[in-house]
Amino acid sequence: MTEAGTVKGQEFWRWQEYHRIMPKKWTNKDLITAGVDVGSVGSKAAIMVNGEAYSWGITRTGSNSPESATKALSYALEGTGLKASDIKYIVGTGYGRVNVPMANKAITEIACHAKGANYIWGPTVRTVLDVGGQDIKAIRIDETGRVTSFLMNDKCAAGTGRGMEVFADLLQIPIEDIGGISLKVEKEPEPVSCTCVAFAKTEAMGLLRKGWTKEKVLAAYTRAMAVRMANLINRVGLEKELVVTGGQSKNIGIVSRIEVILGVKCLPMPNWRDEGSLDPMVAGALGAALFAKALYEKAQKA
């Protein structure tokens, strides 16, 4: 068990910041590129060696986007022996993409998430549900990872990472356990009719007072959020294979319910806790680093 399951003070919303270095080595002949994805909740930076994921870092986004970008990139470089100056090309993406100071170019997170999903799961992926800190996006892609159609939800915290942080605090359950706990119900309750996270602060309390268990409350809310996400996917059109990226890809309660509602299985999720494994939360940064490689090579040819 990682540090994730432990409770630090009363900050149930707090999720684990971490960085990872893949086992392979790099040499001076290799092309090093990077992608920096500054999201509303998490900042992710990924380093690629010849277009292969090499290392990444995930940190919480602070109030200052440029600082968060710098912090994420240094975290990704930590222990690799690489210096920022070794990186030939950097693409910035995410909500704070225009504020990534070291980036050679900014590209929308939609394109980057699509490219990253194609990288993580391969060319059979056609539908990507990206559930980040403040957005839910349904993206259709072709076999090269190019976006063909995309939809973003209206601004609403229901189902987003930020919304889940509020639930974690409200029910006093560590955020990384929320998904699993929401599945610990004998019978799936009816989804709540109102998913508004602000109202949930009183409505969920009301349900607990009525004798509902935390598990049942979470199940009813998670179900309602999964229904919303499934609706978004249906609007862009579901085509197999389906994958989930972004921070909430780690929420098994959300992912498994979407599978049930849509009647399809997602491609297996890499187990991000394992060394040597990719993490769907860094899909955007990986996609950005791939674009960085392509753009660098294009510039060299020109």
Partner: peptide
């Protein structure tokens, strides 16, 4: 401020106060 959701609005207001 991000005013289309109470939850996001709250975070925005807090960061505006910090600034």
């Amino acid at each position: 401020i991000n005013a289309s959701c109470v939850i996001f609005g709250e975070s925005d207001v807090v960061s505006l106060i910090h600034r």
